[in-house]
Amino acid sequence: MTRASYIVAAVAAGALLVLLPLLGSGYIVYLANLMLVYIVLALGLNILIGETGQFGLAHVAFYGIGIYTTAILTGRFDVPFLIAAAAGVLLAGAIGLLLGYVSFRMRDIYLALSTFAFGEAMQWVYRSWDAVTNGPNGMRIKPAELFGFRIATDHDAYPFVLATTIIIIAATVWLRRSRLGRAFRAVRESEPAALAMGVDVRRAKVIAFALSAAYAGAAGGMFASFSSFIHPDSLGFTETILVVTMIVVGGLGSIPGAIVGALVLGAVQELLRQAPSYQEILYGVILILFMMYLPKGLAGAVGNLARRAG
């Protein structure tokens, strides 16, 4: 692919994103909002697993922190939406920092299990802390207000969700190119080698945990801008696995991969709803085919094609 074709593709994608609310029904815009949330979730998890090589499975717990913090602050304390969403990001990031600090010595399966346990514990908290989360009844989310404008529909929320996603993608690209981004990848490739190169491995891991959690918290705030309800059942291990699958299918460690993975898996999930009798089988077959024929994910496949073409 030439530079010109990249530009054409980017312009086409941009035009589609801008025109989407004009052309699409509320349902389509709702799906678009949901997929943009998935993109931010996938980018966040990609920092931890794809970039830093830390197999954390608590991502959806932080997503929940973002949603509940935003919902509680706007609904009960009339805190302006943006401040509430920012508080969700900070709280998720802070708890992520703590989790990263506690678990930085763990690796591989032990890290996966301990973060999985944290995710399960958080879901239990969402389900059981009635006074705060409204427990198993689920919590209604007050419609967001931005600069005096009340977000009542998916169309209303779309510009905010899209803008936030673009900012987060830009920040992720910057992070990847930064010294910290290089430190993450050094840790992923070899901790002893990274140490030898002067990378503070512990610091890099803890920051990766915190950043990843903050991304999930941001995704939670975005979700709260267009959704009117959250239930603890939506914050379980199934959702975590979905986000993990997105970055694996997209291509671990790749920003375009995380984005495409989120879009593809989001679309596949929705399309498979039209084939209820076969969807579990089809979903499984799609994943197996990806693992067999595109082990480096969609990003790797596109890269190979580009190399062959040009």
């Binding site: 349902y27 709702y30 949901l34 689920g138 998916d154 959250i230 709803r273």
Partner: peptide
């Protein structure tokens, strides 16, 4: 699930 039911209803 909540998300899927909302998507179904909106569709």
């Amino acid at each position: 699930t909540a998300n899927d039911l909302v998507a179904a209803v909106k569709k």
